[in-house]
Design a protein around this nucleic acid. Sequence first.
DNA 1: ATGGCGGGCGGAGCCCGA
Length: 259
Amino acid sequence: MKIASWNVNSLSVRIEQVIGWLKNTSVDVLCLQELKMESSKFPAQLFHELGYQAIWSGQKTYNGVAIISKTPLTVEQYNNPYYADAQQRLIAANIQINDQTIRLICVYCPNGSELGSDKFTYKMQWFDALNVYLKEQLNTYPNLVLTGDFNIAPDDRDVHAKYQGDILVSPEERQQFSNLLALGLHDSFRLFEQEEKSFSWWDYRQFAFKRNAGLRIDHLLISNALTKKCTASSIDKAPRGNERPSDHTPVIVTLDMTA
DNA sequence: ATGGCGGGCGGAGCCCGA
């Protein structure tokens, strides 16, 4: 089965691209971030017509997350129960596959703006609370996928030279990423040989995509139990070359749940 | 050092993202 994540930077602008991508890839699960859409406007019917169910949590102008799945979504969670947050940045649910439960947690992590800012403090507190939630969730669900836009490039390999030492790559942010791995999560992308300079986001400005001046900030973290079932993890760069693209492109993990 | 592009909001120009 394939599980994907895509920060679409406005679902209303990107809906045709998302539907087209689902038709082409037929992933089992797609986690979306940055809907920038009120919940009442979520186009659930368009996903139903393709055979997908959906749960979502939106708000006007900013943030917003959703999970689209071919199989039923249960035990839904909207927002982190350990963090009172008006910003819609976390949604979670279970899927059943071959009599096994997989816990899916979809996140749009804060950007942080700049080091030392109030938004950076919010980012750190948000990740502290995410860590508490994940510790609890991993105790309950051995098969767990934490995916989304982390707004952290975990390693120098994940960074175009220009961004060295700045927001998204600071030691404090990378420590937050390490803290999640320390709970028993793995960066699925790094379980496999990958091309150098593999990124998931490129600035709209200065032909950054054409120059491959990007960052790898969208991730699929999988629990210990799932590493044995993980057969691939990749980035699909194609949608970033679309007309009017999102600045992020989808990331995909493949799990063999018969193994 | 600054702004650069694109989306939302609102109906011009600013805030925000990464």
